[in-house]
């Protein structure tokens, strides 16, 4: 069980959240070429280590959060608001 320290609600279990994917990619502009959208949708990294992810607090404050999670250990290092840029540990 991952526990996520929501900046609004405090420490909650992952069951209250919905995983919303990679928070390090940016959607291409509306007029970007098809290749850019292909890469945005399919060409994703699958890092072993620290990763910044979107988690939606669907059963709490209904806010999107940026969670810095280790993909091997599931350790959660930082939980930030959507507008913030959390620091990612080097290892």
């Amino acid at each position: 069980m991952i526990r996520i320290d929501c900046p609004w609600c405090g420490m909650r279990d992952e069951a209250e959240f919905t995983y919303r994917g990679d928070a390090t990619v940016t959607r291409p502009g509306a007029n970007a070429p098809e290749e850019a959208f292909h890469d945005f949708v399919y060409a994703r990294q699958n890092p072993r280590g620290w990763h910044v992810e979107w988690w939606y607090h669907s059963s709490g404050c209904r806010q999107f959060l940026k969670v810095v999670r280790h993909t091997m250990t599931h350790e959660v290092r930082t939980v930030a608001r959507a507008t913030e840029t959390p620091e990612v540990p080097s290892e």
Binding site: C9, A15, S59, G60
Partner: peptide, 10 residues
């Protein structure tokens, strides 16, 4: 106040 799930219900 806390919003959470009880019996899978908001």
């Amino acid at each position: 106040v806390a919003s959470t799930q009880i019996a899978h219900l908001a």
